[in-house]
Design a binder for these strands. Structure first.
Lengths: 224, 224
DNA sequence: CTTAAATGATAGTAACACTATTATAGTAAA
DNA sequence: TTTACTATAATAGTGTTACTATCATTTAAG
């Protein structure tokens, strides 16, 4: 169970570890529900406090502000995703199959068969699609990055680029392709659901199936 | 000069056309400077009013809120970009060259050789990279989309997918590839500047040159 | 049983996102 | 030339957000 280490999120993100108390866990759990329901911009600590049955002040003892709470949630997701990638790929040798698995994990809802899962994965998935770019598309990016807040994301990107190179050792842009894959998996899912004309998804077609097919096609064309 | 029609932004976006008065133009001009400087999150109508030398109330007569002001600015950019694409491509027959031109326009700073340009294109470019996804990654996406706010963006995406099909008529995902190109041009530029480890850019390498090379390589691998 | 840490309760402040009202200057029609 | 309409300025006000501070109370650990 050495993978459990990867589950930890960077402690620059929180003031007090939310996993260390019931209230902390409840804050994160309800935050996921609330952000899913009303979206990040409408989400406030006051509303969250009411949901949890606590006070704003108590939430501020765990997180500096709502931005860092979002960072925390996404980090949790990314580190869980990386864990799943590592776990599901460790007995696969065929790099082609590995890429397929990765794309599946990026597009389908994550499995919840781990005992450690306490959050609503389906909501989390939507949050990742809709809100994740908001954590880095900010003026304070340099400072935030110095706090090593994006380590999980970079690790995931590295893991994928290793597989990319297994498939085609000559390919010159493994990291860019990996970050493109991750980002594109989000925005194509969003577009397929909300701005269909920006994609070639058919009416009533399964969105994550469509995006998976598109990304697989893309990656194999690029790397063959 | 039939292209000038395309310069108009959809009037669901503003309350009063900012192009119809000096104050209106000044609001948009200073908004671009201010959003560039302090970022969308820190940008407020109050600060903008001070910059412009007017009052909050006056700005509210032009735009419903800062979200729609951003939408306006991005629409202006997208419609100018589409104008440039149309204009620069109309005498080119080779689809390969067309794609190269498009990628150049997506990654390099836009030329300002049109008499109609009144805004700081360099700032605009940065705003597009950093802020554009914020206009659609919101809970209100359905309502906003119904107001035809994203028409310019979709038009641009359509234009590019036509070229994609010229290069490879069998390619099954022309729209998704086009929207991926646009989005990836933004996020790879952002990553190359701010989170280099997510790309393969070299230290001191020119960012837009890197992204152009990456995207060209990608597109031609996909479409050949 | 004592003490420290975590939480709850309450209050308060500055900034933000608006809305409303009235005054005034400029312009266009009668 | 008056009238009348429009755009803007000036000012004020409201409810919400994003915090910070203080102090009382509960709880858990030594």
């Amino acid at each position: 169970m050495e993978y459990q280490l990867n589950f930890r999120v960077n402690n620059n993100i929180y003031i007090r570890d939310p996993e260390s108390s019931e209230l902390g866990k409840e804050i994160v759990r309800k935050a996921i529900e609330l952000i899913y329901e009303i979206g990040y911009e409408h989400f406030t600590f006051k509303k969250l406090a009411t949901e949890v049955g606590t006070t704003e002040a108590s939430i501020y003892r765990y997180f500096k502000n709502k931005h860092f709470l979002l960072v925390y949630i996404l980090n949790w997701y990314w580190s869980y995703l990386e864990f799943l990638v590592m776990f599901q790929l460790k007995n696969i040798n065929d790099p082609q199959l590995k890429i397929r698995k990765v794309i599946e994990l990026l597009t389908r809802e994550l499995p919840t068969d781990s005992g450690r899962i306490k959050y609503n994965i389906s909501f989390l998935n939507q949050i990742v699609i809709t809100e994740s770019s908001k954590v880095y598309l900010v003026k304070e990016i340099k400072e935030i990055n110095q706090a090593e807040v994006f380590k999980q994301f970079k690790d995931l990107c590295n893991t994928i680029s290793t597989i990319v190179l297994e498939l085609n050792p000559q390919y010159p842009y493994p990291h860019s392709l990996s970050s493109t894959l991750i980002e594109t998996s989000h925005n194509q899912q969003f577009f397929s659901s909300n701005l269909k004309r920006l994609t070639d998804v058919k009416t009533n077609e399964d969105v994550s199936g469509y995006v998976a097919a598109y990304l697989e096609d893309l990656v194999f064309r690029v790397l063959k």
